[in-house]
Write a protein that binds this DNA or RNA. Structure first.
Lengths: 191, 191
DNA sequence: TATAAACGGAACGAAACGTCTTGTAAATAG
DNA sequence: CTATTTACAAGACGTTTCGTTCCGTTTATA
């Protein structure tokens, strides 16, 4: 069975994807989220309308608003933090601190919207976990390994605790997620 | 300013609320959730249709599907567990175990649907936190106080960790929530 | 008997869904 | 240059749900 991959050595035949429309959709989505929150005002329709793009184009490249959110977040996540160059007793706190600092208002809204979609849509949840959740878990895993000897058995448990707390506070808007809390959490875990 | 409360000493004038329709709506919702998951198949329309009830009636007593879920869950929560009659070192594990055991498939779906609605709808989130989240936090707080001397400063943090982990696993379907995990978590916290 | 409130049923316009059609634009293949 | 192929913007489509508003009826109190 021969499948046509997007090899570099084989340019596609027709009109190439419009990078302008691509960006317009991402920007329009971001704009709508900033303006109306993660609310139901952000739809495939309103995104296409705001972006000045045909609905067909949006549906062609993304299956749902969740897919668009996911791409936006991957873009944001690229401007991220390196780990490993600190004294081991500061690794965890630094990781948590920079993670929480990355949670700007728009990013929070997008994360909430993503989670809402993941809860409702089984297939999207798998994509979400694979593309976002797992990479963050692995990053924290590395930090914990560097940081100190939490028994390997309980490392997954600890990761669930930490990201659980983060999502719990994020989704329900209870408690803070800032540098001070990062320190508190890191200290609590070491103790 | 005089407000007419629902005092016992003052029966209302017109036709009283139909307990039959009341139940029919709750049962229909539960039935739909069991059949189709927390998916978008459960709408105010489909609930009214399934219950054999006018939409007006549903909208009169509940503002959204979330309100209906909330009432169902309050009903379920009434069949709940008492705390305080165990050796202190078993309190936490028992609390967690019975909490997790209460998470039957339908209950999980309802909880997920509730959270999804709480994420999207700011006003509903407040209701959700007030009516469900806070009472569970207080219950766990009592258990932790009985259980052992976790410093009072960090009790809220610990509660966030525990319920955070529970929701994280519940919403993303990662990891188990059963009696064995209850034991593991309780032991991990004591250590 | 009159009044008041809740009821089931059905219709409403508005909005979003996902698909489809139309005509145009931008690339490659021969 | 011409044919082919693919993406594009625009928008029409039938369907569904939304939340509201009628209607006529039922069931209570005054």
């Amino acid at each position: 069975m021969k499948v046509m991959d997007n090899n570099d050595c084989m340019k596609k035949r027709g009109r190439p994807r419009s990078e302008k429309s691509h960006r317009a959709v991402l920007d329009a989505t971001l704009h709508l989220v900033e303006e109306y929150g993660s609310a139901s005002a952000v739809t495939m329709e309103s995104i296409a309308r705001t972006a000045g793009v045909g609905k067909q184009t949006v549906y062609k490249w993304w299956g749902s608003t969740g897919d668009i959110y996911l791409e936006i977040l991957e873009e944001i996540a690229e401007q991220e933090i390196v780990i490993g160059d600190l004294p081991p007793d500061k690794e965890l706190e630094t990781f948590l601190s920079s993670t929480f600092m990355a949670l700007k208002p728009v990013t929070r809204l997008i994360l909430k919207a993503l989670m809402a979609e993941a809860i409702i849509d089984q297939k999207f949840r798998e994509k979400f976990v694979e593309k976002l959740i797992m990479s963050r878990r692995q990053a924290l895993g590395q930090v914990l390994t560097l940081s100190k000897g939490s028994s390997v058995d309980d490392q997954d448990l600890l990761i669930d605790f930490i990201f659980g707390l983060m999502w719990y506070r994020l989704l329900l808007d209870v408690g803070e997620l800032n540098a001070e809390e990062a320190r508190r959490i890191a200290q609590f875990i070491k103790a």
